[in-house]
Simulated scan of single mutants.
Amino acid sequence: MVRPVRALGSGTHHQKDRSNMFSRKRAIASMALTVVVSSVAAPAFAEGGFDSYMSGWLTGIKTRNWNDNNTDAASTSFAARACSYQTGRDVASIAMELNRNDTYTPDEHYGEKTLSCNNSTLTTVAWGNPGKGNFDMTLKKIDGQVTSYNGKLDVTQTRIKY
């Protein structure tokens, strides 16, 4: 659509265009400021993590491994929800061990942590920040026992953060 040409001194139409231009500039500046403030005020997140589950586990089985580049100060943690034996009986607790997988030396173990299993919420255990490396976790105990006399373990949801 072609707009008719008006003389600069013709008054209100020119002023209206000018005020719209300033309104647009203010709106753009406001959006840019919002983006900057949002990015500065955003909470710090852990470097990484993943959700998974356990099906048919016995003690000694390991999670998948991951690389922690130690780009943050986040603690390494394990969380679980809804633990049961494959027979359907509830599991009260499980113990996990954090391991650093070293290439030329024996793996470094950070100790086992026991967490109570809850059917409705994730319960979490943490090891602090172990630094940079390749890690995994090992299932060490089910209901306080190294050997399971009640069958294999199923866990509906697990979460590892690092």
Rank of each mutant, 00 (worst) to 15 (best):
M21I: 02
P4M: 10
D68S: 10
P106M: 02
A27T: 12
K16W: 13
K152D: 08
Y110N: 03
I160V: 15
S93L: 05
T76F: 09
H13P: 05
N134G: 00
T34H: 09
K16Q: 12
L8Q: 09
R100K: 15
F135P: 12
L58K: 10
I28S: 07
G11S: 06
H14G: 10
T138D: 05
D51N: 09
K16F: 13
L8T: 02
G56L: 05
E97Q: 15
A42M: 07
Y162K: 02
G49C: 04
K25D: 06
T59N: 03
E97H: 01
I94Q: 05
V2S: 09
S84L: 10
I94S: 02
R26I: 11
R26Y: 14
G48D: 08
P43D: 00
S148W: 04
K113A: 04
P130H: 08
S55G: 05
H13D: 13
K16D: 08
E112M: 12
N69S: 06
S84P: 03
S10K: 03
K140G: 06
N129C: 02
G111Q: 04
T158C: 01
D68W: 08
S75Y: 07
L153I: 03
D102F: 11
D102W: 15
A74M: 03
C83N: 09
S120N: 09
G131E: 03
R81K: 14
W57M: 01
C83D: 01
N65R: 11
D72A: 07
N118M: 01
D51T: 07
N65I: 01
Y110A: 00
R89K: 15
M96D: 08
T114G: 04
S23M: 08
S148K: 11
A27D: 13
T76Y: 11
E97T: 14
C83I: 05
D102M: 14
K25Y: 11
K16R: 11
